[in-house]
């Protein structure tokens, strides 16, 4: 961990001002010399590993007084970016109206980490790829653009099968983001020039030729809130993993359905553990709309969801696993009592 200057800010404009120091250079936000500190579960971790090297750490936790509210007004949901994962997961309204959100949070990390980690930080958590996290590996395009990717032919059991490039196959590790992308959430971003909103699906960037750029955030911008329109009581988050708890997904699915008189009028499917970014399976969703649920449909949807997947030496199993997880999650969502 490099030395840094610690600053604590008590209002959003001060935060933006403090982070603006980093805007001068052209680095992606993850490389900016000033980094916001919320829960710290990613930042401090990666700083200890010398992967992230900010010279200024801006503690934005005091902003929680304005940025951590959970609001369910008029059928829409607004989640402050500094709300803690555990608080949102434990909220009975969220559990009732958005089980996919509550479960994606509840099944992530551990109770202690969920107490610390914020929603905004959580969606920005960085890959668990060993070759990225361990700076003694020379080849990581994400850490050191142009250096190559050690994971392509390395031990890649946990790596992605969707959204990969020849430059990077690192998995996006989060759970909550799958719920947000499934529900077409909007991200509220606060920056120098005020507040802007983007669809959640536009927040993350697939690696393509520049895996070091992970999001469309500009340096100095902060996520201030997420909003979801409508309620999704018929939704599930299913997470498959080696151990029962406290592990990243091998494969997960966020599924939300709107069923009217037995016919699926709207369907959302997102995949976790499989892709380089939060992953929406839109082609698969298209197969569902207007249909009645049956297992054969679930199978077709699952096949479509993984249609473009590319396996490698240790992770090829994730394609078949991903399909089974999607089919199972669809089944659960279709048959759940609400």
């Amino acid at each position: 961990m490099r030395s840094f200057t610690y600053q604590r800010v008590t209002d959003p404009s001060a935060a933006i001002q403090a982070l603006a120091m980093a805007v001068a250079n052209n680095n992606p936000p993850t490389e900016a010399t000033a980094q916001p500190l919320a829960g710290g579960t990613t930042l401090i971790d990666l700083m200890k590993l010398d992967v992230m090297r900010p010279r200024t750490v801006v503690d934005i936790n005091p902003l929680a007084s304005t940025w951590s509210a959970i609001n369910l007004d008029g059928g829409n949901l607004r989640l402050g970016a500094l709300a803690r994962m555990s608080d949102v997961a434990a909220n009975p309204e969220i559990q009732r109206n958005y089980p996919v959100i509550a479960d994606s949070l509840r099944l992530a990390a551990s109770p202690q980490l969920r107490n610390m980690a914020t929603l905004g930080g959580n969606v920005l958590q960085r890959t668990r790829c060993t070759y990225f996290r361990d700076i003694s590996y020379a080849n990581c395009n994400k850490r050191d653009p142009g250096s190559g990717c050690a994971a392509l032919d390395g031990f890649n059991r946990m790596h992605a099968v969707l959204g990969t490039s020849e430059q990077c196959i690192a998995t996006y590790p989060g759970d909550f983001a799958q719920a947000l992308i499934a529900l077409d959430a909007t991200v509220e971003i606060t920056g120098k020039s005020g507040v802007r909103n983007i669809p959640f699906a536009q927040l993350h960037k697939p690696p393509d030729d520049s895996p070091q750029i992970e999001t469309t955030l500009a340096p100095g911008e902060l996520i201030s809130a997420f909003t979801v329109s409508g309620r999704w009581p018929r939704s599930v988050y299913l997470k498959a993993r080696d151990r029962q708890s406290y592990e990243f997904a091998l494969s997960s699915a966020a599924v939300a359905l709107d069923v009217q008189d037995g016919v699926i009028s709207d369907a959302r499917v997102a995949l976790g553990g499989l892709a380089t970014v939060p992953w929406r399976a839109r082609e698969a969703e298209a197969l569902i709309k207007g249909q009645k649920f049956d297992e054969a449909l679930a199978q077709r949807v699952a096949d479509a969801a993984l249609a473009g997947a590319q396996g490698r030496r240790h992770n090829a199993f994730k394609i078949a696993l991903g399909k089974r997880v999607v089919a199972r999650a669809l089944h659960q969502a279709a048959t759940m009592e609400i």
Partner: peptide
């Protein structure tokens, strides 16, 4: 583990359990 992977450092901060190895003293 010093990385939030084991829980041995768990303390209560403002009565909530937290990972003390990932919490800066300053914060």
């Amino acid at each position: 583990c010093d990385h939030g992977q084991c829980g041995a450092c768990t303390v209560l901060i403002d009565d909530r359990r937290a990972i003390s190895c990932l919490t800066l003293a300053l914060a």
